[in-house]
């Protein structure tokens, strides 16, 4: 390509007046190794524009999931789920707590009753011990008699 033509194309290129075919010509021209020094500065521009097309999409397209919901769309529902769990938890949790309290009260009552019963038992035992103390007198008297002999 002649230099005149390149310069003309360049001028029109920057005014956005070139056709696709002319732009391709430019890209081809600037891919050549022998470019006049004053045009060298345009090389990276056309070089980049030409090479940028070679980038590929490497991701997968998960079409199977398309009928369902994608994970990202599920995300807002996470808060709803969390609140639900919290509410259900509070409801049943309260039930459980009440039950626990009731059991505690029952246990306390049983403990008190048992204590009362044991106290009664102890009292009666003490009374028994007093009576047994009389027997001691008998043993002492008996020993006195043995000692005398």
């Amino acid at each position: 390509m002649e230099l005149d033509r390149v310069e003309d194309l360049l001028a029109r290129y920057f005014e956005a007046e070139t056709t696709i075919a002319e732009e391709k010509e430019l890209k081809e021209y600037f891919a050549r190794p022998d470019i006049p020094a004053h045009l060298e500065q345009y090389r990276p521009m056309f070089g980049y524009l030409n090479s940028a097309k070679s980038e590929r999409f490497t991701g997968k397209v998960p079409l199977k999931k398309s009928t369902g919901v994608s994970l990202k769309r599920l995300y807002p529902w996470l808060s709803v789920a969390a609140v639900t769990v919290l509410m259900v938890g509070t409801y049943f949790g309260k039930d459980y707590y009440d039950q626990q309290q009731l059991e505690k009260q029952k246990a306390e009552y049983a403990y008190q009753e048992t204590r009362k019963a044991l106290a009664m038992l102890a009292e009666n035992f003490n009374r028994g011990t007093e009576k047994v103390a009389y027997l001691n007198e008998f043993v002492e008297a008996q020993e006195k008699i043995y000692n005398k002999n």
């Binding site: 999409f57 490497t58 991701g59 397209v61 998960p62 990202k72």
Partner: peptide
Amino acid sequence: EDATQEILLKLW
């Protein structure tokens, strides 16, 4: 890549 996937899913 995320955006492209999203667009393709929308298209699908």
